[in-house]
C-alpha cells in the first residue's frame, strides 16, 4: 500500500504536483515560489514602468512650515488647493485640512519642530485625504485593527480554559 502511494506520487507531472501541494506544510513554500516568480517578472519589466507625474494625491514638502512633514497647505476658514478624484462628492474640500485647535495653533506659532506632535494629538491636523475624500479607507483600516485585536484576545484568553 505504501509503495503504491509513492509510485502514484511519482507518475505524471500533474500527480507529482498534486502530491506536493496536498501536504499543507508545503503551502508556504509554494506560495513563496509564486511570489518570487512574479517578483522576478516585475524586476525584469521594471524599465518599462514609468512614474506618472500627474498623481491625484500629490505630496510636497515645505521645510519652512511649522507643520513640516504633514503640511497639506491652507489656513483656517479658507479653502486650500486639494485634489480629489471626484470633487462633486466632496463639497467642503480644502476647508478640512486648514483646521487647527487653539493648542495646535499655539504650537505651530511657537516652534518649528512640533509637526509630529501636532499631527499626533487629538484635533491636530485633520488630513483631508485620510479623513475626508478617502475616509472609508480609514474606517475599514480601523475595523481591521479591531478584528486583529479580537482574534488576539480570543487566542490569549483561551489558554486559561
Amino acid at each position: 500500500m505504501r509503495e503504491r502511494e509513492i509510485r502514484e506520487g511519482h507518475g505524471s507531472m500533474v500527480s507529482r504536483i498534486s502530491r506536493f501541494i496536498s501536504d499543507f506544510d508545503n503551502l508556504v513554500p509554494a506560495y513563496a515560489l509564486m511570489i518570487a516568480c512574479v517578483a522576478l517578472i516585475g524586476l525584469l519589466t521594471l524599465p518599462l514602468l514609468t512614474y506618472e507625474p500627474d498623481q491625484i494625491y500629490p505630496k510636497t514638502l515645505n521645510p519652512s512650515s511649522p507643520l513640516n512633514p504633514y503640511d497639506r497647505g491652507g489656513a483656517p476658514f479658507t479653502a486650500a488647493e486639494v485634489h480629489a478624484q471626484y470633487p462633486e462628492n466632496a463639497p467642503y474640500i480644502g476647508y478640512v485640512t486648514g483646521y487647527l485647535t487653539p493648542l495646535s495653533r499655539f504650537f505651530a506659532a511657537t516652534t518649528q519642530y512640533m509637526g509630529t506632535t501636532i499631527v499626533a494629538h487629538p484635533g491636530g491636523i485633520i488630513d483631508e485625504i485620510l479623513y475626508y475624500t478617502r475616509g472609508l479607507d480609514t474606517i475599514v483600516e480601523t475595523s481591521i485593527l479591531f478584528v486583529a485585536f479580537a482574534v488576539a484576545s480570543f487566542l490569549y484568553r483561551r489558554r486559561e480554559e
Partner: peptide, 19 residues
C-alpha cells in the same frame, strides 16, 4: 486600494474563524 483593504480584512477574519 479600498478593495485591497476589504480583502485583507476578509483574510484576517478567516484566520479568526479557523483559530
Amino acid at each position: 486600494f479600498n478593495f485591497c483593504i476589504f480583502t485583507s480584512m476578509v483574510g484576517l477574519t478567516c484566520i479568526g474563524i479557523v483559530a
